[in-house]
Design a protein around this nucleic acid. Sequence first.
DNA 1: AACTCGTGGAT
DNA 2: TATCCAAGAGT
Length: 359
Amino acid sequence: MLDFAHRIAKHLEPWFLQHQRDLTWRRTRDPYAIWVSEIMLQQTRVDTVEAYYGKFLDRFPDVGTLAAADESDVLAAWSGLGYYRRARLLHAGARHVAENLGGVVPDEPDQLRKIPGVGKYTAGAIASIAFDRPAGLVDGNVARVLSRLQAIEEPRLQDASSAGHWAMAQKIVQAGSPRVLAQALMELGATVCTPMAPRCEGCPVRSECQALAKGLQTAIPAPKQRAPSPREDLWAVAVRRDGRVLLEQRPTEGLLAGLWCLPLIERKISDRAGAPPRSIAEVTGVKVKSVEALAEPVKHVFTHRVWMLWPCRGEAAIVDMSHQTDEGDTPGRMWIAPGERPRGGIPKVTEKVLARLGF
DNA sequence: AACTCGTGGAT
DNA sequence: TATCCAAGAGT
């Protein structure tokens, strides 16, 4: 008589081999390429990653190339993908592997964990998927699948940090091909055992599912409540000079750290009659005259806050040309023409506002 | 341990 | 429209 983990594995392996989606990163066994895919896929949907993955690998085809690259170029390739710290950590990780490991991606989870940006999940994913090592992994999909299969109703035991899930995932991937089973657990969660309306009719392990037996498949896992996002109203100041617009680099800490945005200035309640304040007399060291509000605000929703960006236009006053450098301006400051973009990271929110302004 | 960090699709 | 949350990691 097979134990639970072996019964799951027995059903899951043939199901995955027949029903898996054709995803670009499943066409390679290059550990570096799989590593890149896992970083991109953190908290990010498959369809979104597909739009970036091939271009990124074309640009940075191996560890050495990525390690030797400038961070600004890595961020440029990541622009629009979000969670930009991932790009910096991936870059640092490539340097770690190039400098300390001879450019060879390790196959042991303990060694993988030492790579910047590689946590418990990603270490298990690279070890199992790239090297077929019996390393368990628990992401949001696996946590949901295992919670339902075992009808775990305690919220603390449902999420991906649960030690019980890690132990069970380990047992399951060891009961067959780790490479197949690790991906199969996630694929099941992504395509069948979905959060909202699980397709239990087509589930290869429905005979093992205690949640289904108890009618709890939509009650598990319990929905987690999140605090409402505060709204921030900001003036997005388009300072123009000679047909160009001013971008500035955000602070090195916090939201959109180090990325290129239009200068943003708090829009106070007292401003809301419609006019930008006279306090926008200087932006990023550039003197501004004749500030005028433009059209509707750009709404941008982050995980923990909402930005309402109110575009306004100002003409640059006489600029002190001693600020000019060979790169074109002061570090952290850039004038761009329509269609032009600086090296470095540009978040989607910047692109939204630039599009509104015709840049 | 709770919080931070982007974006977009599904419902 | 509002809400959830996705192949998480670092602090």
